[in-house]
Design a binder for these strands. Structure first.
Lengths: 311, 311
DNA sequence: ACTTATCGTTCTATAATTGGAACAATGAGG
DNA sequence: CCTCATTGTTCCAATTATAGAACGATAAGT
C-alpha cells in the first residue's frame, strides 16, 4: 500500500482531473493514471469514474478523499513542526487578491515580507473573480466582501473594514449643483467598477445611519481602479472607490471627496485559507505579517500620511 | 517528499531499530536505511541518532514521530472506511430510468430492494432524456432502445425485450371500420408519446413478420404514459404503449388491444453501468435484484397476473 | 460536418529502486 | 583479551517504475 498513491488521488480530486493535477504537480499524467489504478486495485474499489473528458468521484472515492486529505494535512503539520524547530521559514506562498488590493495595499506589504523572509517565494495572483482556492493551489486569499462569506470549508480571519467614498476632480466638483445632498448627485456621469447593471446606482450611508440610493448615468465602466481614478481626475465624472485607493490623490489635490459625511459601502476585508495548511511556517509568517501590516495601510495610517504631507 | 519514508521511520521508532523493523515488516533493512536517510535529507534534520549498536530518536525526531504517527493513523481510518463500504451492502445507488419505467416497472422493484437492503439509499432519476451517466454520477441506468446502443465505454446488460401494442377504449374500438387490418387504422386520432414529428406514423409488425407503416393524425402528444393511457380510456384515440404499461387496464376492461396480431415495436431493455471494475456491493446487489425481478415484471408474469385476477 | 483541442490510457526505452551479500563497527560473554 | 553475534551501511545485478510520445475518445468551435 503506497501512501503516495493516496496523495496523487487527492490531488486529482482537488484539481478536478488527471491533466490538471499533472500540470499542477509538474509530473506526467501517465504516472497519475497508473498510481490511481493501483490504488483502486489495492482497495478493490473504483474511486474515480472517468471518461476521456471528465472525472467524477464515486461515493467511496469521496469518503476516501475526506480521510486521505485529513491524513495528508497531518503530514504537512509533521513537516511544519520540524521546519519550525529548525527555524527554516522557506517555501512558496501563493496569495490571491483583487487587482485593486494588489495595486494599492499589497504593493507595500509584499516587498517588505520578501525582505524579511529571504528564503520564501511569493506567488501573487491578482484577479477580480474569486477563484477556487484549493483547485488553484492558493494558500492565502485576501478578499473584500459586504456580507458574511458563506464558504465554510475555509478558515477566515477578519483583517479590517474599509470605507468606500465618492470622489471627483476639483474641477468637476465645481460643476455640481449641490455638493452636500445625495439626491442632488443623481444622473451625473458615473465611473463604475466592474460591469454596470442596467440601472446603476450608488448606495450611500450617511453619518447618522441614514441611507440613500442615488441613480446615476454610467459613462465609463472598468475592472481597473487605477483607470477609473485617472478618469475621475480628468473630470469625466463621479467615482466610488475605497478610501485607501484614492488617499494620495486626495492629499495631492487631484481628487476631492464628494459628500464627506456619506460612505459608498464599507466592506469587510478578510483573509481566507484552505484548512490547516496555514500551519506551514512560511504561510504562518505571511499571515502574521499581513495581519500586522494591512489594517494600518487600509485604514490610512494617520502618522504616515501626515509625515508625507509635511515633506 | 515520499510519504512512505515517514511510514518506515515510524516503524523504526516503534520497533526500536532498523533490524527489528525490517524483521517485523519482512523487508530488507537496506531499504529502511536508505529511506530514513532520504527523509532526513528532505527535512535536512537528523531524526535518528544511530551507532552500530543502538538507535535513539532525536528531539526533532520525536516531534516528527508524534505527528507522522497521527497522520498514518488517519490513513488507516481512510482505508478502513473504504473496506467497510466494500464489505457491507450499504451506501447510495443512483438509478436513472425513463419516467415510464419508473411508473410501471421500477415502482414494484425498488421498494422491495429497499426492504431487502435496509442500509442502502436509492436515488432515482426518472427522465426521458438519456443523461451522461458519468457526469451525473449515475451508477445504473435502465433504458429501452430499438437498435444496439452505440456508447462503447459503458457496460451494458440485456434485461428483456418488451412489446409495444396498440390500445384504445372498448367504446372507441366499436367505432373502428375494421379492427383487423392495419391499413384501415390510418388517419384515426392518435395519442403519441414524446414530441410528434411532422408526419407521424405507426410502425407495425405482424405475427408472420410482415410490416406496415400506418400514418395517423396526432390528436394529443405527451411525455407521460399515464396521461396517454387515461386519454385513451376516455376514447380520445389510439395509443401505442408498452404492453406492461397497460396490463392492468386491459384486465380491468378499460382498454382493449387493437390488432392483437400486430406489435408496435419491441425494444430491448438494457441495464447500463459506467464500469464493471470495483463495483460497490450495494450496486452489485441492485444489479442482481434488477436482473432477477425486472424481466418477469416486463414480460407480465403470468402467475402473478392470474393471482391478482382471481382475488 | 468538419477541424481542433484536450481528455485519460497505453506503450516502451530508460532511469530509479530494490534485495541480498559483504562490510565495518560495536558490545556481550567467556 | 578475544571471539562472535548483531548492529546499520554500502555495493551491484535484477527488478520495477518512469517519462514522453502515440493513441482513441470526446466536446467545443467553425
Amino acid at each position: 500500500m503506497d501512501l503516495n498513491d493516496a496523495f496523487y488521488f487527492v490531488q486529482i480530486v482537488e484539481k478536478g482531473g488527471f491533466s490538471a493535477a499533472a500540470r499542477s504537480l509538474n509530473i506526467p499524467k501517465s504516472r497519475l493514471s497508473r498510481r490511481v489504478r493501483r490504488l483502486e486495485d489495492d482497495l478493490s474499489v473504483r474511486l474515480l469514474q472517468r471518461t476521456s473528458r471528465i472525472v467524477t468521484t464515486t461515493e467511496v472515492g469521496k469518503e476516501y478523499y475526506r480521510h486521505a486529505k485529513d491524513a495528508l494535512a497531518r503530514f504537512e503539520i509533521a513537516e511544519a513542526a520540524v521546519r519550525r524547530k529548525t527555524n527554516t521559514i522557506e517555501g512558496t506562498v501563493t496569495v490571491s487578491c483583487s487587482v485593486g488590493m494588489a495595486q494599492f495595499a499589497l504593493d507595500q506589504i509584499l516587498p517588505r515580507f520578501l525582505q524579511d523572509n529571504p528564503r520564501v517565494i511569493v506567488v501573487q495572483r491578482a484577479s477580480n473573480q474569486m477563484e477556487d482556492l484549493i483547485k488553484d493551489g492558493v494558500d492565502v486569499a485576501i478578499r473584500g466582501h459586504m456580507d458574511t462569506l458563506p464558504d465554510s470549508s475555509l478558515i477566515q480571519t477578519r483583517l479590517a473594514r474599509v470605507e468606500w467614498h465618492l470622489f471627483c476632480s476639483p474641477k468637476f466638483h465645481d460643476t455640481l449643483d449641490q455638493a452636500d445632498d445625495p439626491i442632488a448627485l443623481a444622473n451625473y456621469p458615473a465611473l463604475v467598477l466592474g460591469r454596470p447593471r442596467a440601472t446603476h446606482q450608488w448606495s450611500l450611508t450617511g453619518g447618522d445611519g441614514q441611507t440613500a440610493s442615488v441613480p446615476c448615468r454610467v459613462r465609463f465602466a472598468s475592472d481597473d481602479m487605477s483607470t477609473l481614478k485617472n478618469a475621475a481626475a480628468l473630470s469625466l465624472g463621479l467615482v466610488a472607490l475605497p478610501a485607501y485607493v484614492c488617499r494620495s490623490e486626495v492629499e495631492a489635490g487631484s481628487l476631492v471627496r464628494v459628500l464627506p459625511d456619506w460612505t459608498a459601502g464599507h466592506p469587510q476585508i478578510s483573509l481566507l485559507m484552505p484548512s490547516r495548511r496555514g500551519l506551514l511556517p512560511a504561510i504562518e509568517a505571511f499571515l502574521h505579517h499581513t495581519k500586522h501590516e494591512l489594517p494600518a495601510i487600509l485604514a490610512g495610517d494617520a502618522n504616515q500620511s501626515k509625515k508625507e504631507a509635511q515633506r
